[in-house]
Design a protein around this nucleic acid. Sequence first.
DNA 1: CTGAAAGCGCTAACAA
DNA 2: TTGTTAGCGCTTTCAG
Lengths: 346, 346
Amino acid sequence: MSRDAPTLEDVAQEAGVSRATVSRVINGVRNVDPGIQETVRRAIERTGYAPNRAARSLVTRRSQTVALVVSGAGDTPEEVHNAVATRVFADPFFGRVVSGVVGYLRPRSMHPLLMFAESEETRRQVLTDLRQGSADGALVVSTHADDPLPALLADAGLPAVLFARPSRPVPLSYVDLAHRDGAALAADHLLARGCRRIATITGPLDVAASRERLAGFRDTMARRGYPYVPVAEGGFTLDTGASAMSALLSEHPDLDGVFAANDLMAQGACQTLREHARHVPSDVAVIGFDDSSAAVGCRPALTTVRQPVEEMAAAMARLLDEQVRGVRGEATSVIFEPELVVRESA
Amino acid sequence: MSRDAPTLEDVAQEAGVSRATVSRVINGVRNVDPGIQETVRRAIERTGYAPNRAARSLVTRRSQTVALVVSGAGDTPEEVHNAVATRVFADPFFGRVVSGVVGYLRPRSMHPLLMFAESEETRRQVLTDLRQGSADGALVVSTHADDPLPALLADAGLPAVLFARPSRPVPLSYVDLAHRDGAALAADHLLARGCRRIATITGPLDVAASRERLAGFRDTMARRGYPYVPVAEGGFTLDTGASAMSALLSEHPDLDGVFAANDLMAQGACQTLREHARHVPSDVAVIGFDDSSAAVGCRPALTTVRQPVEEMAAAMARLLDEQVRGVRGEATSVIFEPELVVRESA
DNA sequence: CTGAAAGCGCTAACAA
DNA sequence: TTGTTAGCGCTTTCAG
């Protein structure tokens, strides 16, 4: 019995007070005599007491945990799960999300519970987990445009916040970036440094962010007198960036500037340019997007449009927290402004 | 009231049986009449019942959750936490760990709770969280050799399993790779393809795995008649791999083979070699370690020594699970065998 | 094979 | 300001 973890009762006994008083001290409820407070603290110290989370959750109806769910496409078979997890985590983006989320959660003694939802069944599982109270709500990072999870969550009335505006409207809060503004920043920077034959490598065009970045870039270029911009579509990966660059180069050998919709593709573009004996930035200036770790890892270091992912992720956590606590009623969206980071590539 | 989640009692009422019976059906306890079983199932369906996790945990004293803790060095200040999370997640290795862990956990309706322990305070927090029952045990991935967390966990008697053998002995289970065997594979492959002036780029030598890989490589080379192997130390990153390669090249311009202690450094080495106009593999053969996503992403694709990270991570989860369930008493270690993966670079 | 009842450890009315 | 008490929703003896 002495091997069992001490309970509130044990501490109360040790301190010579009631359970309720100890509970008050622990939860920082006012109206507790400072002297008693000290006595209780010492008793807690002596007994090595740690409040049982399950018991607390049972009465507060809150788990102090949020699901961080990586949500995929329509129906990835179970077997490919490995690939999904590996790919997502390999992307420096996700690390920044985790970082931001933990930054908000940790000071509040909350934790993220990791979940994947890449198939019909696993999505159902996420809903069940939430209904069971495994987590108080979900932070959803979708890897595909047509992710059905947000709608499911909304229909079930479960608290959730999304990263990026969903392709079809859903009554859920989300955080997003002013992608158009970011692309405008890129266009203006390339033009300012004297580039005149500028192309762009887009992300997958079924992703809203990709379309926004392209639209913003084109708009600004047109407004500045360059209505025609060569475009190649990539897939946000190094490889596709490299291929897209090859394609652009063979069509327009005289290019002197490229805007890639993310850093990984910009890096791929740099590789291709080097292989084609183009110097970056003197022959061709390259500008990326995100300011991910790839940007500084790239040689030359990438000039890029910074997306404040950590802050965005922290905001997600905050929105969810407020929603769970009932501080916030309606679904809200928070849009962040991008920022140009000038390094060597442009 | 009707908006409240249905409880066991509601289901029992609906099915016309007692709470206990419903509980038995849900938990698959035998001794329940098949007819009643069916009735109960239907009642569950109709009510949309989902068992409350906190309530269950309170009585079973199990959270069905394990902490996946990324544990850092001595005393990273709180502010640098971002960097830690970002760096760790950027490493493709961690994604594979998550993948393996989730692969084991999910079929058992368990989830990983993400935690970071990079300072005195956050380590204390991890211990507290575990004592509170936030998780049933910890899966620890240390990023530094002198990580104090394992010892703390062991002292507190908390269930835990480590990735890699701790530098100082600790009575905890762990999984690891036969690093020496892997290095031997690399040496033999380079020799077999005709390389005769072979060097190696090691990982940080305060990391046991780095030392093992180096020792294994040297042993095999010596045994094959090459007692002297040029060595350069790297830091498991692309940059350090590139620098190490430069150093080796300036000392030994006639090198024809390199073994790098991980893929990222091998990739860096390839970059340097290209800059120095050495063709890979015809001038210099390069072999990496891990078979991470970097290996396939690299141009040329990396020949490498595969570390079955997913399986290793799954084994960690299994060991922990068994320990929590009391199936396993003593600390155990499971050592995995590496495998050569031949691609283009050697 | 099924039901009644006793908690698991905690918080939160309500009394004092 | 403190204590008493009634549950939170579930599992699990123990009877029947």
